[in-house]
């Protein structure tokens, strides 16, 4: 990634915003699909940009003593990422309550992911205190 790529992304984002507002004026039926398409395209773009970053972080954690827990770490980040994007798309579509439910589901998913660790932690402390 360099400055040219950032300029390209900014240019595409501005173009998409202009296209959405023009389509909205011409035919409001295509407004939501247009916004969805732009959001999904940018989601794909951001995902592609994040791959080397998360690849490096995964390498960093997997070569350490915490390799067993990298599933929890990156799982939580991935769930939050996906949930955030979905909630934003729902808000774009005017479904504020739906976005709230999606975020709640994401939070519960992350808590369920952490559950085995919490159990392990409580067992260790119980062993010590007992």
């Amino acid at each position: 990634m360099n400055v040219i790529d950032t300029l390209k992304i900014c240019g595409i984002a501005i173009l998409a915003a202009i296209c959405v507002s023009v389509v909205k004026r011409i035919n409001s039926t295509f407004d939501v699909p247009m916004r969805l398409a732009a959001a999904i395209a940018f989601f794909g773009l951001v995902l592609g940009m994040s791959v080397p970053l998360f690849g490096y972080l995964s390498e960093l954690v997997s070569s350490s003593e915490l390799a067993a827990w990298q599933g929890v770490l990156f799982g939580a980040v991935g769930i939050a990422f996906l949930t955030h994007v979905t909630a934003e798309i729902c808000r774009e579509c005017g479904e504020g309550s739906l976005s709230g439910y999606v975020e709640l589901a994401g939070k519960i998913e992350i808590l369920i992911l952490c559950l085995p660790l919490v159990k392990e932690l409580l067992e260790e402390v119980e062993r010590l205190v007992g």
Partner: peptide, 20 residues
């Protein structure tokens, strides 16, 4: 945007370090 999600991610990272 969601504080709930943000705190859930923070919790996951903290739980990993705490367990270790």
């Amino acid at each position: 945007r969601s504080e709930a999600l943000s705190s859930a991610v923070g919790l996951a990272v903290s739980v990993v370090i705490v367990s270790f």
